[in-house]
Design a protein around this nucleic acid. Structure first.
Lengths: 215, 215
DNA sequence: ATCTTCTTGTGCTACCTTTCACAAGCGAGA
DNA sequence: TCTCGCTTGTGAAAGGTAGCACAAGAAGAT
């Protein structure tokens, strides 16, 4: 397991896992790389390559045992434990995330929320009481929070992230439209709506331009 | 402009554009590939390569004229027009998106919202009246909506997306945790919070495992 | 007019990711 | 036990993407 696994592989593993959980709930026992590929939008060879980085989980001629592979993937991804998460910034996005039921179901416990806005502090959103920023360090330590979700306005994002990391966060999920500068041992993922929308615009515009030429 | 441009290049172009807009607002006239690279988390060579796919926009020895390059990128990405967007599913995420002020500012007008829930229909969220699903076709045509944001529960996502495309949507931004099966001429981008969170868990777990071995 | 300094645009190279193709292996049935 | 049908695991090839390094060019100093 020494080899460096690429982000795209990890993303696919997540997809496989999601699918396997559904299959497991449906009490299906066995699944082939082809079936797994079709339901996750990739190819059978890709599925096998991805899994092969971590070991041999299948039976030739048969496929993969659903429950077994599910458990294996959960271990690979580090999902056999629960993860404590804090939301920084309780605006629209922050509140939406606090109420997102899927988290609990998937092993993530949103245990704290922070905001600078006096009128938000003290309010309870989806069972979590919004704290002032000055409580951040203490709460992160007390609750052993390892993941910080940045949902602040863009101006506050970098500072919030830095502070979360200093307080012990190992990973950042960033909703603010800015590239965070982070030391390399902190894991960062971005969720940037406008970036994705602009990407769609490019594709649509390009497609139209291409057909315009053809016609 | 015949060559196929990769998704990662398009994403970077969006980042460059965002940075250029800020620089332009600050009335800075010229920027180098190095500066642009530093503020967007990439390398100078990458910036130049990305731009070179579309033409020569800089002056050797000087850099790029900020306003000029901004306009060029807006044209490349198809952002010289405004885009009309509909939100399908007005739950937590849907409502958060409806109220997201950045959209308008960036050329996206959220002009319609749909939900199956009777208690939601008719309500006004951030200036948009929630419509029942049966109005979808008419509204899409009337308002010439080209982008559909899927914010429904996962079970309803595929159907909602299919229906939006049949009604004329050219692009889908999918917030539901499912890989949508779409015909290839429809542009699709995914925003999947749990996928990203799981990716972070992998990285954190892997990092801890690696240092455990070292120590 | 020439030199110096700076930055772009780009061919080449190195690396990484995906796809291909097939031997190896498993189980069922005769 | 042998054969057949099926699917995995993987080395090798193909296809992309990113980084290097430098010639070409632009502006200002001498």
């Amino acid at each position: 397991m020494a080899r460096k696994i690429s982000d795209s592989t990890v993303r696919r593993l997540s997809r496989y896992l999601r699918r396997l959980r559904t299959l497991d709930r449906q009490e299906l026992k066995v699944v082939s790389s082809r079936e797994l590929a079709e339901s996750t939008g990739t190819t059978a060879a890709q599925v096998r390559k991805d899994l092969s980085h971590f070991g041999s989980f299948g039976k030739r001629g048969q496929g993969y045992a659903v429950t077994d592979l599910r458990v294996q993937l959960e271990e690979i991804l580090g999902l056999t434990r629960r993860w404590r998460v804090a939301v920084l910034g309780v605006g629209r996005i922050g509140s939406a995330l606090l109420g997102y039921g899927f988290f609990t179901q998937r092993g993530f416990d949103v245990v704290a929320a922070f905001d600078t806005d006096r009128s938000m502090v003290g309010r309870e959103v989806a069972g979590v009481t919004v704290q002032p920023l000055k409580e951040l360090e203490r709460t992160f330590e007390e609750l052993e929070i390892s993941i910080a979700i940045i949902a602040t306005p863009v101006e506050a994002a970098q500072k919030a992230a830095d502070r979360a990391v200093r307080a012990g966060a190992k990973a950042i999920l960033n909703f603010a439209p800015i590239k965070l500068g982070m030391s390399p041992e902190v894991a960062v993922r971005e969720m940037d709506v406008t970036l994705e929308l602009e990407g769609l615009c490019y594709l649509v515009t390009e497609a139209r331009a291409a057909t315009d030429v053809k016609e």
